[in-house]
């Protein structure tokens, strides 16, 4: 993602336990408030981050999250990057399908998170871990 400029204010959090998912939510929330996202956009982004952080923990075997404020010149946004060195996703199309579940949720983790953000990138493969980057822009 070369388009947007991250202001060098990246905050990283490990995701190795339940309480880390809560910490990621809280960090994303405070950064979204600071970037003046609307309450609904904050809520959507935090919810997406919660889904993705849980994926990192449960499916990726733990990993980390990086939160940064980005700008494209006109608008501010919050970008959250999740990375793990887990088994990766073999069939991405299937995993992105509504209702697909590995049994721990309602099958809405990835597909639902994608609907809640403005930009969604995923890079994964069998044995290659998973990296997901999402961005929400202020309106």
């Amino acid at each position: 993602m070369a388009l947007a400029d991250s202001g060098g204010d990246v905050e990283a959090l490990p995701i190795t336990a339940d309480e880390d998912v809560v910490r990621v939510r809280q960090l994303v929330r405070s950064r979204a408030v600071a970037a003046k996202l609307s309450l609904i956009d904050q809520t959507k982004l935090v919810t997406a981050a919660s889904e993705l952080a849980r994926n990192t923990l449960v499916h990726g075997g733990g990993g980390r999250a990086e939160v940064s404020t980005v700008t494209n010149g006109r608008r501010n946004g919050i970008r959250v990057h999740f990375a793990d060195d887990g088994p990766g996703i073999a069939d991405l199309d299937l995993a992105m399908t509504d209702g697909y579940t590995s049994g721990t949720g309602m099958g809405l983790g990835l597909s639902g998170a994608r609907r809640l953000v403005d930009e969604f990138d995923i890079d994964t493969g069998p044995g290659a871990g998973t990296r997901v980057t999402v961005t929400k822009w202020s309106r």
Binding site: I40, K44, G112
Partner: peptide, 14 residues
């Protein structure tokens, strides 16, 4: 349930 939560839930697909 807060309004923003309701909107997000529906968009999430729940």
């Amino acid at each position: 349930m807060r309004p923003a939560v309701a909107i997000t839930l529906v968009e999430l697909g729940l």
